[in-house]
Design a protein around this nucleic acid. Structure first.
Lengths: 145, 145
DNA sequence: CTAGACTTTCACATCAATGTGAAGGTCAAG
DNA sequence: CTTGACCTTCACATTGATGTGAAAGTCTAG
């Protein structure tokens, strides 16, 4: 598919799609006329990149992350140098920190909403019992801001 | 405490502490001489603000979040207008999206590291069994980038 | 052939978060 | 009183993620 359709399907402006490519976060083939050509699978890639960027990850890290995804066999992973492994371990801690922070905030919002007289705006049936939050149904979560 | 000590204790430059205050994310008293005076509790506030900003939350949302934290009694929460509740519910979805995205990436990194010949860089004893990740020990997670 | 809807690259503008430095006030130690 | 370590505000620079628009090539419909 061409860039316009990809943009329509992901809601990401073409400007940004080209930018992500320039940053090494997205791949594309070229048609004889110079137009970019994307495989179907790129839609998911774009959504992931968007999610990570909106979560404050530097493109540097996202590049790294995307590079690791395909690695199924043991060979490539094993050849990972000690230094790279340490760097990754540090980034892992950063990720954990962000997740923890966002999770606490999410719980704050949930709790607040549950106490509101408009609790029905919560998309899911949900019950708050002291510390325990019981979510009865939850969707895959659509792509964010 | 004064701004210098707060900066030392949080690792956040004074420039940023003043900026957060200007953005309404941080409160401070003033001494007779004009110096800012912070209560002990502000250290935690700064860490939270930092975490949220590094997770890509707009200051607008952070302001909202911080405003909701103190609300213990039912009164305030109940008086929350329908519109605000809906807005919050939308933000909740955004938060869920980010958490999901970061969590998937964290798992990717963990899995990768576990397959590496340098798995010992992982701060925690950890075992990966197919889909199940068993974390044997985990610290509170220090404040991030 | 032409109009319109695509596409390309290039460049400048904007916004939020942050760095940096100037110019000056406060205060405790010597 | 002076020095040094603090603090104040103000302002300009930078960086990353974006918006926007110009100038030009491609392709399809009429």
């Amino acid at each position: 598919m061409r860039i316009g359709e990809l943009s329509r399907r992901t809601g990401v402006p073409t400007r940004m799609l080209r930018y992500y490519e320039e940053q090494g976060l997205l791949a594309s083939e070229r048609r004889p006329n110079g137009y970019r050509e994307y495989p179907e699978s790129v839609v998911a890639d774009v959504e992931q990149v968007r999610g990570l960027i909106s979560s404050g990850l530097p493109t540097r890290l996202i590049r790294l992350l995307l590079g690791m995804e395909g690695v199924e066999g043991e060979e490539l992973a094993r050849t990972c140098s000690r230094n790279v492994a340490e760097t990754l371990a540090e980034e892992l801690e950063v990720l954990e920190g962000k997740i923890g922070c966002l999770t606490r905030s999410r719980d704050t919002v949930r709790e607040f909403l549950a106490r509101t007289r408009h609790a029905e705006v919560l998309g899911d049936a949900q019950v708050v019992l002291g510390d325990a939050q019981v979510v009865l149904a939850r969707q895959p979560a659509s792509s964010s801001s």
